[in-house]
Nucleic acid binder design. Sequence first.
DNA 1: AGGTTTGCTGAAACCGTTTTCAGTCGCCGC
DNA 2: GCGGCGACTGAAAACGGTTTCAGCAAACCT
Lengths: 338, 338
Amino acid sequence: MSTPVYRTHRVTMEDVARHAGVSKASVSRFIGEGRGLLTEAIAERIENAIGALGYRPNQMARALKRGRTRLLGMLVADIRNPYSIAVMHGVETACRQHGYSLVVSNTDRDPEQERRQLAALRSYNVEGLIVNTLGQHVEQLRQLQHELPIVLVDRKVEGLGSDLVGLANAHAVGQALDHLAERGYRDLVLVSEPILGTSSRRERAQAFEQWLAGHANIRGQLMETGADLGHRLGAWHAAAMGPGAVFCANGLAALAATLALRELGVRLFDDIGLVALDDLQWYPLVGTGITALAQPTQAIGEQAFQCLLQRLQGERCPPRDLSLEAQLIIRGSTPDRT
Amino acid sequence: MSTPVYRTHRVTMEDVARHAGVSKASVSRFIGEGRGLLTEAIAERIENAIGALGYRPNQMARALKRGRTRLLGMLVADIRNPYSIAVMHGVETACRQHGYSLVVSNTDRDPEQERRQLAALRSYNVEGLIVNTLGQHVEQLRQLQHELPIVLVDRKVEGLGSDLVGLANAHAVGQALDHLAERGYRDLVLVSEPILGTSSRRERAQAFEQWLAGHANIRGQLMETGADLGHRLGAWHAAAMGPGAVFCANGLAALAATLALRELGVRLFDDIGLVALDDLQWYPLVGTGITALAQPTQAIGEQAFQCLLQRLQGERCPPRDLSLEAQLIIRGSTPDRT
DNA sequence: AGGTTTGCTGAAACCGTTTTCAGTCGCCGC
DNA sequence: GCGGCGACTGAAAACGGTTTCAGCAAACCT
């Protein structure tokens, strides 16, 4: 099979017009709004010409003239984080249903990439932006916001004043901790990725502290993932007062914590309980299954899209803060210790 | 904080030109190739004007004239498949490094969506296309191929004659089965998602059959995922001759099989061995860890991008078939039974 | 000095659409 | 029989860039 040669000249509106013996204007009307204006005879000629030539309008040119690209941008800090993927799936589905396409940019957590990718998305005239990153470059974001609507996902950016879609973190943390308390756990660790600068992590940590403040009989501490997580967990476990449990603030923390615990040689879930925020497909497979708080990721993605859509349609309301609720899914990792 | 009002008029090249007291042409040269042509004095004036006005060129307009959008499209059958994500990450990284942006479309395995998303990507004048789908609509793909380079990932499409990047399936299957044989397993099951229509699955199944044909002392059968996978696995296990093992043809099959085995009540890995193609983060966590064949997904993504890039730069060679090799990672799920 | 070359610059055309605006035509009422 | 009115249609001007081409100095030859 031979290498194809790329056709240089795509068939254009002018070609169709010529072939049908009408003006470009009529063709434009045919493929756009003004179809009702056209005579039956002309419409038919155009239709045939389009069919014969295989014409497809060029969105770029169309966008240039109309100022509507029907393109949305999504900036993601870590495309390999299952949470991001799940949200992205929600966004993408909603986009598809409304005739938008999605340009995805991954920053790999690099602030410099964040800056460049934002500039790139802007230069493609995306109509709106979904942002799930560190939110360095607040100034850049603020400028961008003068040109197009932005909605943040999961992570707040201070002083930006745009819509936010995320989890009701305090409530979710409460659900998890109440569950642990009820099952008789008395010494807790919150394992989180580095908290600094990520609003959702901070909120979860704060909710953890506050909940502890209201439960004098239960001890708790905070632990960030990192090199010697195993050691630290070991030390904690050795000194635990009463049944202990680990609460993982997200999927990656759950992975790290579970690996660490396993290397520690504890009997998972018999010696130490575990709850994870985010519900990943493999949770049922680890030991007797990991109890989880499922985030409504699909809904989060859809809501984010809806926010954008409403802003694009001219809705002028103060910045919203949509917090969705998590669902507790009880599995074997939190056996009753009472 | 009040709702921002979107600025209607973005600053344009004409604005810069006026502000600097030069022509559009000079500004164009400044931001493009012809910078060397400009006098120091003029360049400086333009630079200042750009800075003062915060000008950013409009890629759409630029693309319209030059015919280069610097946009690549990627069509994915299932965006939630970890394999797809991993490849996509590789592609995205390569794109970023070369100044391209990526438009991602997910078909959710729906042929109709496949058709529409292809049309959409085309209409945005993506310069090239990375396709990882069922490949219905061969005709549409073939037409598209006259306009832009296409590279297939993982899944062949018959009669298309475009580059393909994927796994050396036969070799990978061989590695897995040799490993199992060596460890003393004598009755094997290949668990795969429905094979029909997906070339990589077919190849893996064929390699399985062939390998069996060459190993008379080992029995084997093929099983597709589906409603009663548990039952079927149970029946197989009950009638197994010698130590049995399950070989999962991809990540989703591994998930399904492991869940099924667990519900069957067998002692995982003591009663039945397990090897999975694809290496997922959570494999170490299941029981004593799942032995896996890791696909070089990052490399696959990068190679796919490179293929496209070379074609875009005018390289004319017959369709390539890049098969990368998998790496066997031995964990606890394949204990020695000899 | 006069004719050439060289080196920058700007005017204008163009990319493929949409949209405005000025026709053209048939048909109505008077 | 003619002005007026709708209903369609097409020419042309955008949109925001790039690129061609001509112009015009200054510098370079004899």
